[in-house]
Design a protein around this nucleic acid. Structure first.
Lengths: 150, 150
DNA sequence: AAGCAATACAAGTAAAACACTAGGGTATGA
DNA sequence: TCATACCCTAGTGTTTTACTTGTATTGCTT
């Protein structure tokens, strides 16, 4: 039931892009360094996000990646769906119909449906802007304190 | 973010046991046949559940598995934790402390915490009895109808 | 006491998913 | 034209998943 590292890195990169939204593209080396991961790996994730229309790219020197949309209008659900393939905990409750012929007699299905519904609520209602706001605020708190955390 | 088949099979087996709770042990061949899976595989799952104190066993002829607890007092959370290892979507929000030193500056952490909280709500508030009740009721509905499902 | 119906346990294994790495190609601003 | 970017495909080692196989051991039944 774990979220893949793809999703974690990719999502965090999108939040990073949200912080600089409207200020021109951010380069891959910059984004990769921010998370301490390889450029090659992060690039794959960003390409997936581009295919999904979440980010846009500018090639050449001074180029980079930027969000296509206002981060306030971009849900976490959309980002994770692209990175994870699907956010369904079991195929039979995913968005695309999965023909489990036992669905109607499955003793666990009611649970799965409810669980998925709650998950979707959170992922759809949380915008990238929400995460970026928290992130900026948290950084401010840390700067104002002697002890960085807790 | 998928739930393993371990969890799906194991959970359904526990619901099956709930249906016969108080009526003596149910044998592995019976449980395996009910789901159409191999006995060897299901046995591993049940052994895990025994280690976790969810089921008890009776050896020898006429033996089998039975729930140790009233299914109304048994949460889905407890069952899935044993089967899945943990129900955490990311290690840093699991029950046992995972020392991610970047936790306090992680832009995705607020989301993960909220998501995990909602998931735990569902898994803790749903009892095995709840699933068994739905299951029995659904079977009744099917018997009363010409078309079995939708 | 024999036999059979059960669980107990350990090991092995094929396939898929995961988490990357490597290396070449193409566009573009300075 | 050169350095800085993005673009794209393949490959690869590791881990996890989803099982199978085989050998005990236990205990009711006859």
């Amino acid at each position: 039931m774990k979220l893949s590292t793809r999703s974690r890195y990719g999502l965090k990169a999108v939040v990073d892009l949200a912080v600089y939204y409207g200020e021109g593209p951010v380069s891959l080396p910059t984004l990769a360094a921010a998370q301490g991961i390889s450029e090659g790996y992060l690039e794959q994730l960003l390409r997936e996000l581009k295919k999904g229309g979440v980010v846009d790219t500018v090639r050449g020197a001074q180029g980079g990646y930027e969000l296509t949309t206002d981060p306030a209008e971009l849900s976490v659900q959309r980002v994770l769906s692209l990175l994870e393939g699907s956010t369904a905990v079991v195929d039979c409750v995913g968005t695309e119909p999965y023909g489990c012929k036992n669905a109607c007699t499955c003793s666990a299905r009611p649970l799965f449906l409810k669980l998925q519904s709650r998950i979707n609520d959170v992922l759809e209602q949380t915008s990238i802007q929400d995460l970026a706001d928290d992130y900026i605020q948290q950084k401010r708190r840390i700067l104002g304190k002697a002890t960085p955390c807790e």
